[in-house]
């Protein structure tokens, strides 16, 4: 997937990037200033927009591990996620609203997942499916396993289970829709691993050691396993 896209501003956290300078300023249009803080018409408009976003979603066609099999079952005949207006998988992240993260995330994949997430247009939502994306699940002790999707991207809904049944995933997605429709989404990142340019990393033994292998400009993700929860 091409990746010449938006900013890749180094040290900013995902949450900051999502919120922009000062919370909510992207809603502060001229109109809103003229009308005052929350006039009737604009609140109605807001709730209409929330209803819109909650009623219809395009999913990103995204599979990682075991959970994606149950995710496919959720799309397929018996469970038919499309009943809730959210069963259209798009192959390109540019056209998706929701990314379901179904599986174990390992060190090699996390930067790529982050990149895919970055490529989705706002407003975007994340459903983390399965114990692996909540915490690393059964593989938490692995030397290569990221302890949950929240280390990398902010998640709106966690659906625990190994794997969650399709019913559980549907429940999670409906809950997400409800939350969006009520205007309450504010995902929190716990301790984000960020993509940074290699040149910006703090110089230490490891970085010096790798200096001849990695280009200054290349994006890297640095894992600090000792501090993982």
């Amino acid at each position: 997937m091409s990746s010449h896209n938006q900013d890749t501003t180094g040290a900013q956290t995902t949450q900051e990037a999502r919120m922009g300078e000062g919370v909510d300023n992207r809603f502060n249009s001229k109109l809103r200033e003229a009308f005052g803080s929350s006039p009737f018409i604009l609140t109605k408009f807001d709730s209409f927009m929330n209803w819109v976003r909650g009623s219809s979603m395009f999913m990103l066609q995204f599979g990682i591990a075991c959970c994606s099999i149950e995710m496919m079952h959720t799309y397929a005949v018996k469970h038919d996620l499309d009943r809730f207006g959210s069963g259209v998988p798009r192959a390109s992240p540019r056209q998706a609203d929701v990314i379901i993260v179904p599986g174990t995330i390992v060190s090699k994949f996390a930067p790529r997942m982050k990149r895919v997430y970055d490529q989705m247009p706002e407003p975007k939502f994340v459903v983390s499916m399965g114990s692996c994306t909540c915490s690393g699940g059964p593989f938490q002790e692995g030397y290569n396993v990221i302890k949950g999707a929240e280390e990398v991207i902010p998640c709106d809904i966690h659906v625990p289970g190994c794997p969650p049944r399709p019913e559980a995933l549907i429940y999670g997605i409906v809950k997400l829709q409800e939350r969006i429709a009520n205007g309450e989404t504010a995902p929190v990142t716990v301790k984000p691993y960020e993509l940074e340019q290699f040149g910006d990393l703090e110089e230490d033994e490891l970085v010096q050691h790798l200096a001849d292998q990695i280009d200054e400009e290349d994006l890297v993700m640095r894992y600090n396993w000792a501090e993982s929860p």
Binding site: M49, W51, S56, D80, D82, G85, P123
Partner: peptide, 25 residues
């Protein structure tokens, strides 16, 4: 399968929802 049936009658309101949502992205 059944496909959209929650949003409005026969899921017809999905038309509005889809269109507005995509435009507002």
């Amino acid at each position: 399968r059944v496909a959209v049936n929650r949003v409005g009658p026969f899921g017809l309101l999905i038309i509005i929802a889809d269109a507005v949502r995509m435009l507002s992205k």
